[in-house]
Simulated scan of single mutants.
Amino acid sequence: MDYVIQQAVNALSLGGIYAMLALGLAIVFSIVRLINFAHGEIMTVGGYGVFAATVFGLPIPLAVATGIFAAVFAAVAMERVAFRAMRGASVVSLLITSFAISEILKVLFQNGISARPKPIALPASLSGTYQIGEITVGVIPTISVGTTLLALLGLSHFLRRTETGMAMRAAAEDFEMLRLLGVRADRVVAAAFALSGLLAGIAAVVWTAQRGSVDPLMGFYPVLKAFIATVLGGLGSLSGAILGGFFVGAVEVFSQAFLPDSLSPYRDAIVLTTVIAVLLVRPDGLVPAAKVDRS
């Protein structure tokens, strides 16, 4: 039983990262109908922001703030430089643009910094564990779960209680009507990208803390899993993205923990098979969006 609880904490930790990334993807998609495959590179920028801050000797709180700010800045700059001119373009054109940005940033990371992982010096206390009865729990997974819950609660408050948040929710329902009412489209879209960058930055901090390093491909696999979670939850559904993220994280952790060693190499295949099985039953996702173009 203790082992199951330990794995449940790990599942919440990993699922929280996927949930934050999936939520960032879903926020942008719900407003501009863009699946941003360069979202992983935004996460990587956040990781390199943490690395650069530690290299210059900044304390951990400032390093965390630097990583999150770098991710937000990268997301807003990406929208302003690349996607604003493509607004209203076809889905295929937007996909090609996001793939192009992703590949350009990967090349810049590999040639401008290094193709090898860069270790990040973290306090020894973060790599420790503590006991709750007979259960051994890691410090970083606990911080990850707490950070995820705070981020999601803060986002919920922002979307429901602030003027910009309510405008973003309205844009997700009917973007053209929002523009007719006089709300500036550029501000709403920029806010959506900034929010997605914030979530990617928080995920980057937690991910680098767990890995202890950053590399040019750091964000690729987490965002790939987050995209799967977004589709599973219901493309364009914010609550579905969160649920899908935790679902994918739980399947991945528990399959790794309880499968025989001979089946461990097939963990990702098992995760995808489970997702396909769920989508066969609920093709619109676990929590379908009220209004979405699934093409």
Rank of each mutant, 00 (worst) to 15 (best):
Y221S: 01
V253L: 11
K225W: 04
K225N: 04
A209M: 07
T230M: 10
Y266K: 09
L238E: 02
G212Y: 05
A229I: 05
D261P: 14
V271D: 02
V214Y: 01
F220L: 01
I242F: 15
V275I: 12
A269V: 09
D215I: 00
I228L: 08
T273L: 11
V271A: 05
T230G: 11
L217V: 03
V223M: 02
V251R: 13
A229M: 03
G212E: 02
F258E: 02
S255Q: 07
P265K: 11
V275Y: 06
F247Q: 14
F254T: 10
A241H: 14
F247H: 15
T208F: 05
L235I: 08
T230S: 13
T273C: 08
I242P: 13
L217S: 03
I228F: 05
F247A: 15
S255C: 12
G245R: 14
T274I: 15
R211V: 05
G249R: 04
A257N: 11
D261T: 14
I270P: 02
K225F: 06
F227H: 04
G233D: 09
P216G: 00
G240M: 13
V206L: 15
S264H: 14
T273E: 00
W207F: 02
Y266E: 01
V275F: 09
T273A: 13
P222A: 00
D268G: 04
L272W: 11
A257G: 10
G212Q: 03
G212K: 08
I242D: 09
V275E: 02
G234I: 10
T273K: 04
T273W: 06
L243A: 15
T274A: 15
G244F: 10
G249C: 09
L243Q: 10
G236K: 10
L235T: 06
L235E: 04
R211L: 06
G212L: 04
A257S: 12
I228D: 00
Q256P: 04
L232S: 12
D261K: 14
F258K: 12
R267T: 11
A250N: 09
T208I: 01
S262T: 14
D261E: 09
G249T: 12
G244S: 12
R267Y: 06
F247R: 08
P216M: 00
G234W: 09
P222E: 00
F220E: 00
L232P: 13
Q256W: 09
T273P: 07
V271C: 07
P260V: 07
V251K: 15
S255I: 08
P222F: 00
G244N: 11
L259W: 11
S262K: 12
L217E: 01
F247S: 15
P216W: 00
G240W: 12
T230K: 10
P260D: 05
A209H: 06
E252L: 09
G245F: 10
V251W: 11
L272N: 06
L259E: 03
D215R: 01
L232E: 07
A250F: 15
F220T: 01
A269H: 08
L259R: 06
F247T: 15
